[in-house]
């Protein structure tokens, strides 16, 4: 296999997505396989994201790899005006892989073109965050026993939320049924609905959480962020409409599980946490196994 990057979820085929979920399950069963022994992986966080960085670095450390890098740019030569091109060219000579997060959209795709070693995108602005999508898929597979024919309800900010867009693209390989719950201001964009139409994938749109969650296998919650609203009054009204509460779960299916990319603000009431259908904390643990799978697969150290 030549050098392969993971920049966008669209870089992986259906078969590769399935492969990653299988590898993640193997790492979950035995998280201390030393398959990255002797490897040096650069963790370049041009924009801070403690949660994502620690998840990647935990995955690398568990598998015996070593991490170099930075968690923000203030101490690097970048703050002295070095171009992004030169930074990536130089660092790719020091390591076996680059994991990077950047506030500029498309930075990871560009890095993948320059770098000698594989590049994993850990988020580029509002664009892609494919390891999040793959851990969402692994969580779906683990809780439902399959990826095919999933009935999924997405709730909250469906307009700007990159996680729901990437998950929609990835699930399109697996014959899903979508329900979108959002205020008019934050509806799923037309381009994604056209994409579903072109693939013959069914979806319905509604403004109410109930009864939209009652047929769901997966309920995917997102944050409704204050800065998306021009009118602060409108935000105050919306944020209380799109809150999931425990008593709303009464009519839901026994196999239903609630996912959320975290951190949450107020959109899942804490009284949901003790419900067995709440899965968002296990979901973060799945992130470590999924990142083990992604890194090992791209480095070609596992079969």
């Amino acid at each position: 296999m030549g050098k392969k990057n993971l920049v966008s979820i669209n870089d992986f085929t259906r078969e590769e997505i399935i492969k990653i979920t299988e590898l993640a399950a193997r790492f979950e069963a035995d998280p201390h396989q030393q398959v990255l022994a002797g490897k040096v992986i650069a963790s370049l966080f041009f924009e801070p994201s403690t949660r994502t960085r620690l998840s990647f670095e935990s995955a690398i450390n568990h598998l015996g790899g070593r991490v170099i890098g930075f968690s923000e740019v203030s101490n690097t030569s970048l703050s002295k005006g070095e171009t992004f091109h030169d930074t990536i060219t130089t660092i790719s000579n020091y390591c076996d892989m680059i994991v990077m997060r950047h506030y500029i959209e498309g930075a990871a795709r560009y890095a993948g073109e320059i770098s000698r070693v594989p590049v994993v995108n850990a988020g580029d602005g509002a664009n892609q965050h494919p390891s999040q999508t793959l851990l969402d898929l692994y969580s779906i597979k683990k809780t439902q026993g399959r990826l095919d024919d999933i009935n999924i309800t997405m709730i909250g900010d469906l307009k700007y939320g990159r996680t729901v867009h990437s998950l929609l693209q990835a699930l399109s390989h697996f014959n899903p049924t979508f329900t979108f719950v959002a205020p008019d201001e934050l509806k799923m964009p037309e381009e994604y609905k056209r994409f579903l139409d072109s693939k013959g994938i069914p979806y319905t749109e509604t403004r109410e959480i109930l009864p939209a969650i009652n047929d769901a296998d997966i309920v995917y919650m997102t944050r409704v962020q204050r800065e998306r609203f021009s009118d602060p009054m409108e935000y105050e009204r919306m944020k209380n409409v799109y809150v999931l509460k425990n008593d709303m779960l009464q009519g839901t299916k026994p196999n239903m599980r609630i996912l959320h990319p975290l951190p949450r603000v107020g959109e899942i009431d804490p009284d949901v946490d003790s419900n067995p259908k709440a899965y968002y904390f296990q979901q973060t643990e799945n992130g470590v196994y999924t990142r083990m799978a992604i890194i090992s697969y791209l480095l070609g150290v596992v079969k």
């Binding site: 171009t83 992004f84 091109h85 506030y103 500029i104 959209e105 498309g106 930075a107 795709r109 560009y110 602005g125 509002a126």
Partner: peptide
């Protein structure tokens, strides 16, 4: 057209 795109920030 995206001002946050790398092609509008770096010489790409």
């Amino acid at each position: 057209a995206n001002p946050k795109c790398i092609t509008n920030v770096e010489p790409v």
